[in-house]
Amino acid sequence: MVENLVMRYGDKVAVDGLSLSVERDSITAVLGPNGAGKTTTLETCEGYRAPQQGTVRVLGLDPRADRRALLPRIGVMLQDGGAWSGVRAVEMLRHVASLHAHPLDVGMLVERLGLGECGRTPYRRLSGGQQQRLSLAMAVVGRPELVFVDEPTAGMDPQARRTTWALLEELRADGVTIVLTTHYMDEAEQLADQVHVIDHGRLIASGSPFQLTRGTGNSTIRLVVTEPFPPGAPDSLQAALGPDTEVRPVNEQSLMISGPADASTLATVSAWCQQHGVLPESLTLGQRTLEDVFLQLTGRELAT
């Protein structure tokens, strides 16, 4: 779908030789920190930007040259804006619906996304979450085959997030292909069939959440301590644990240990803590999360 895409803004390279594809009838997450090139990639697929290098095909069409044929078939949720400042939520949704041949029932969608509560309030005075839900409704009301959603739940409260996730899952069940960008790990883990992890405009990993998190067969231990570690702590812990494990500093008060999470590893870690006079605040044992995968691949935290 995207092949060898390169996009630059001035000197800054936003997307650097990115290639990825999307399966039909699935949810694909493009995961990465802010500034990773997610939105630029999405907007190139939506036809807003022309690829500076490489090719992009969406549903087999060129998003620029075949724009008129492609647009009715895709739905687009922008990260923000997209409505007149004085327009009412339902009025805006009805308008977008009227541009399509076989739109969804607007009343159903309004109820489904809780937009009825917006009443006669003009768009500029809706809450961020309400604007997001309206934006999602506008993306799907035309009954598209493929929906692009850019950070669909950024800034939403937990209830609205669950509603949004449930809607996206229902869309997939009914045969809609969904491409979403997110910097939320749990969103990608929960929703996506396929995850593309990108950073600095490059694809650094692809796979199902299962493949990505269980890929090595190892588990993860996260150690958080009450005071900053003494200098050289990761190296000395690494030496104590031996070559089967990998110790990575997360910040000055936490680090991550990948390897066999068995009793002997735990015993070694607590002995090491005692020996170095650091007090563990928490020692979390668990499967790797996408967060850990990202950390392992980039050496950086994803959270913003």
Binding site: R73, A101, P144, E170, V176
Partner: peptide
């Protein structure tokens, strides 16, 4: 809330 299966079945097209 949920909606009956098939509600969102794609039916793209411009008015």
């Amino acid at each position: 809330p949920t909606t009956p299966h098939g509600t969102f079945r794609p039916a793209p097209g411009a008015a």
